[in-house]
């Protein structure tokens, strides 16, 4: 997984880390807490299924760009799985 944060002044920060670091039980637990905060109520079984599906999608969609946010003032955040 690669997270790129570009600031409007041209500074760019790239952070790489293995996807398994996120897509594991601990990551799933954090995701579960975040989803709960956003009133998305899912069971742990469903969440495990979601994590499994994400791992599968990583293989079927190499170079998968999950999110790209561009601000009007030039800032940019990109998450590549």
């Amino acid at each position: 997984m690669k997270i790129t944060v570009s600031e409007k002044n041209g500074k760019e920060i790239n952070v790489w880390f293995p996807t398994w670091l996120i897509l594991n039980r601990f990551g799933a637990r954090i995701t579960w807490q975040v989803l709960k905060k956003h009133e998305v109520h899912i069971t742990s079984r469903q969440l495990r299924r979601l994590v499994r599906a994400m791992k599968k999608c990583k293989k079927t969609h190499p170079g998968w760009r999950l999110v790209e946010v561009s601000e009007h003032d030039g800032g940019r955040v990109v998450i590549d799985i």
Binding site: Q46, A53, L66, V69, S70, E71, H72
Partner: peptide, 20 residues
Amino acid sequence: GDKVRVNIPMALVQVALEMG
């Protein structure tokens, strides 16, 4: 002027859909 792009594989959409 802000732009957001979210790409979700359909396989994941199907799973998310089943999760409500």
